[in-house]
């Protein structure tokens, strides 16, 4: 067994030629090209096309009318709502996730493993199943409903959080929380205990250590967590549809309606591309911030 381990280590650390290195990259490049770039390119092409509303066949052309159509107030309103909900969910995940990640990072041994597994367990089930799980939790006479009523927070009258904006918020925060906790945990784990001890030795109180040492050093994890939560939450489709009762339309729902209900692929593509472009801009800005933060840490 030990020999095998030594052999694997040698193989993994054997210098490889530049050509072999490129060869190893090939599967990833092909996969990204086929399953990400090609569909994205098709979506971009569709977004400049037009549709025959009799048989819903798409004709490719170079019209910008699909993009100008997005400027109508209905779509701008939905986009703003999606971004606001995404921002709110990201902040809530950060506020809840940071202390959780901090607790896990400070835990040691078996306790830490147990806490990490508890965070990851929900990922072992499908997203739809988790959303329906929340559906039952917040539905009429569900556990949360009973608890809030018992605490007198629903004014003594049985009500349901289902089909309310609060229900959507709970669903998004619950679903995306692990994506915030895990990168922050990794960043906190990497902080040398000596650095914290030095800050304390120099007279910094715990709160000052947190704000001046821990948070800056965890910044790459915080940025990564915000990206992992904020970007998919902005295009969220399932949670508003299931938990919101279709009353709170988000950008993802509009895209879905254009493709599935109205058959207007070009307009749906233009809406999707606009959100993709917007989020790409945010992503690049956050990446540059993260790079600067990492550079500061290295110094």
């Amino acid at each position: 067994m030990q020999r095998l381990s030594v052999w694997i280590t040698r193989v993994l650390h054997r210098p490889v030629s530049a050509l072999a290195e490129r060869g190893l990259l090939l599967p990833s490049v092909v996969s990204a090209g086929l399953f990400f770039l090609l569909p994205l390119g098709l979506l971009l092409l569709y977004s400049f096309g037009s549709v025959n509303l009799l048989n819903y066949q798409v004709y490719f052309g170079w019209t910008f009318s699909n993009y100008t159509g997005i400027l109508r107030s209905i779509y701008l309103g939905v986009m703003l709502r999606s971004l606001a909900l995404s921002l709110g969910a990201t902040l809530a995940c950060l506020l809840i996730g940071f202390p959780v990640a901090h607790t896990i990072a400070r835990a040691r041994g078996r306790r830490q493993v147990v806490l990490l597994v508890m965070i990851m367990i929900p990922f072992w089930t499908s997203f739809i199943v988790r959303t329906y799980g929340i559906y039952n939790v917040i539905s009429y006479k569900g556990p949360l409903d009973r608890l809030l009523n018992a605490l007198g927070l629903l004014h003594g009258q049985l009500q349901s959080l289902l089909f309310q904006p609060a229900g959507i918020a709970i669903g998004i925060v619950y679903s995306y929380l692990p994506l915030m906790v895990l990168p922050i945990y990794v960043a906190l784990e990497r902080i040398e205990p000596n650095v914290l001890a030095a800050a304390a030795d120099l007279g910094a109180r715990p709160r000052r250590v947190l704000w001046r040492v821990v948070v800056p050093l965890a910044a790459p994890g915080i940025v990564a967590g915000c990206m992992l939560v904020g970007i998919p939450a902005a295009g969220e489709y399932t949670i508003p549809a299931i938990l919101g009762g279709n009353k709170t339309l988000m950008y993802g729902n509009v895209v879905s309606d254009q493709f599935l209900a109205l058959g207007n692929y070009p307009f749906g593509s233009a809406i999707a591309m606009t959100l993709t472009g917007l989020l790409l801009g945010v992503l690049l800005w956050l990446r540059s911030r993260a790079a600067k933060a990492e550079a500061r840490t290295a110094r």
Partner: peptide, 13 residues
Amino acid sequence: LVGDAQHMAEIAG
């Protein structure tokens, strides 16, 4: 079969 538009597109395509 999500809606008539998809249904039509499926048959026409």
